Amino acid sequence: MEGVDFERWAVILCKPDAVARGLVNRVLGMISDTGFTVSNRLDLIAEPWQPHVVYRNLLADTAPRELDLPAYLDAAYTGRQITVALAHGEPGLHARLRQLIGHTDPTRAVAGTIRGDLGDDSLAAARAEKRLVRNLVHTSDDPAGARHEFGTWYGSGRPLQVSDFDRCSVVLCKPDAVERGLVDAVLKRIESAGCTIANRQDVIVQAWQANVHYWDLLVDRGWFPDRDIPACLDDAYAGKAVTVALAYGEPGIHNRLRQLIGHFDPPHAAPGTIRGDLGNDSLERALTEKRLVHNLVHTSDDADAARRDLGTWFGAGRRLLLTSNGVPPQPTHTNR
């Protein structure tokens, strides 16, 4: 968990009563509808030690209490199914989530909160029946709590598999950008558009990376009788230097970056786009020379493409870098 920014991550615990009542999807939906990104949903059977750790402050409290809290926790959680998930947002999300879930006693939770709208228990009923109140959901109190709860529910030492690819794109500065010394200029243009650039890395391309990246061109190579696509990819990429980086921004980043880099054929790219301002090649010339067009830069098409691009260019198991954070259509003559 080292390096994870728990100022921006919280753990959501959908308690056994939420699972038993079939309310997990509604609970998580209310959280995501409020603007948080919910990911890494995991269904678990609670072990005895886990609620003890989560409620350690209550268990260690020396103030007098009427209830047998350890026994109540065991009865409420041990062997019961729960669902956990991660919520991502801006710093301060822990306090906002606590407001969203509402008062501990559902009868005192206001309308619009999760417990206020979905709760069906009360603290008075719980005390009368000598048990914990059933209030559906818990979220981390603060960053320190999120750190402890992540280790509790997701496993000590388990890497944080955050998948907020709606806010992250892979930037590939192609061999022509490297050869022309334009990598800094390309990344600066992206940064100036409001993105945060991180994890810049220089890569010598292996043949398989180009093949995976341009899988659609290879599958539909029959649409390109004017060029030998596998040979073109080997010639353009294999053994060549590229620079990759991650660009972070708001949801919709993929479309915005695709507009910023411009049309795949530089002469058709509008002024103000990267390819329009910096490009010096054309599809016409590339077709004449039976090669791919040199157009400087690629950014991920969408969230699914960003996931593939990350594995392709940064390597398997590198999703920790994100902690900060059908039938294809008929192809056109592009190389993105």
Rank of each mutant, 00 (worst) to 15 (best):
A95L: 13
D5M: 06
H294A: 08
L187W: 03
L13N: 11
T78K: 11
H88Q: 13
L187C: 04
P328G: 11
P331E: 07
D5A: 11
A245Q: 02
A75V: 03
G157K: 06
E179R: 13
R8K: 15
D142L: 05
E47Q: 15
G29T: 08
V203L: 12
A198Y: 02
S156A: 12
Y77D: 00
L320R: 09
V24W: 00
A87L: 04
L217W: 05
R189A: 09
P51M: 09
G116K: 02
I101Y: 00
F150W: 11
L292P: 01
G317T: 04
F150T: 11
V297M: 03
V205N: 09
P64E: 15
S324L: 14
R189D: 07
Q206R: 15
L13Q: 07
A238Y: 03
T104L: 05
L260W: 00
L97D: 01
A63F: 12
L217A: 03
V186G: 02
I114M: 04
R80S: 06
G155Y: 05
C195R: 12
S39F: 07
E289I: 01
W153K: 07
A60K: 15
F6D: 03
T299V: 14
D184C: 06
E47H: 10
V205T: 12
P91M: 10
T243N: 10
A18M: 12
T243S: 12
T139F: 03
N335Y: 11
L296M: 09
I197K: 05
L322S: 01
F6P: 00
T323P: 01
R256M: 07
T83G: 01
A316P: 00
E129W: 05
L310F: 01
A177R: 06
S39T: 15
R291I: 09
S39P: 00
C173S: 10
L217F: 07
N25A: 15
L13H: 13
E250T: 14
S32I: 08
P91E: 10
I12P: 00
R307K: 13
G252S: 09
G102N: 05
H148N: 12
R180H: 12
N335W: 13
D176F: 08
R96P: 00
I253T: 03
A18Y: 10
G92P: 01
L67S: 15
A111V: 07
A109F: 06
V110R: 14
A60P: 00
N25F: 13
G29A: 06
R65C: 09
G252E: 04
H263E: 13
D43A: 14
A75C: 05
S192A: 15
I190T: 02
Q330W: 09
L69T: 05
D74I: 09
V133C: 15
K15P: 06
G112H: 08
L287G: 06
G89Q: 10
Y248M: 04
G22K: 02
G89W: 04
A60V: 05
V244N: 09
